[in-house]
């Protein structure tokens, strides 16, 4: 079964534990500026929204790469950057409509979410379950359940 990151911004408090977990998993340091998931704070609306790569099937970044440095992890469905092949041309960062693949000046490569090989660190670190890792075919399950629960409320 393929799984996807599923983000429910309503539950996010903005603690940035996900950003620290991501940077630790990938760089061995606690460094939100190296995180592949970012939490955006829309202060005047009181909303915090974590955002990262959604692993498009026909990924713009993958198609745009001139050296085939972005490959598919067949088990997780993640689009994964091969650092050895990446030449740092940044064309993928231009082609991605969501901005979720970014250049890292310190390494000269691009980086994006790779789902940590199927065990995403951000999910484990999130204290409020705002980020979960669920069946790709059923990311709407919780929301369906909520509405289903209201279907015959009136008859109770």
């Amino acid at each position: 079964m393929q799984k996807s990151l599923f983000i429910d911004p309503v539950k996010c408090t903005g603690c940035l534990q996900c950003e620290m977990a991501c940077s630790y998993e990938n760089t061995g340091t606690l460094n939100p500026s190296q995180s592949r998931i970012k939490v955006f704070n829309f202060e005047d609306q009181g909303r915090q929204v974590p955002y990262t790569c959604t692993q498009c099937d026909e990924a713009w970044c993958m198609h745009a790469c001139p050296v085939d440095a972005i490959g598919l992890d067949k088990i997780t469905g993640a689009k994964v950057v091969d650092d050895d092949a990446c030449v740092g041309c940044k064309v993928c960062t231009i082609s991605c409509p969501f901005g979720t693949i970014n250049y890292v000046a310190e390494t000269g490569k691009v980086q994006k979410c790779d789902l940590c090989g199927g065990d995403p660190a951000c999910v484990k670190a999130c204290p409020t379950d705002a980020i979960t890792y669920v069946d790709s075919n059923w990311t709407g399950l919780d929301r369906m359940r909520q509405w289903a629960g209201r279907a015959n409320e009136a008859s109770l």
């Binding site: 408090t13 603690c15 940035l16 534990q17 009181g46 909303r47």
Partner: peptide, 8 residues
Amino acid sequence: TNAACFGC
């Protein structure tokens, strides 16, 4: 809503 400080 509620909100957290860094790391909280």
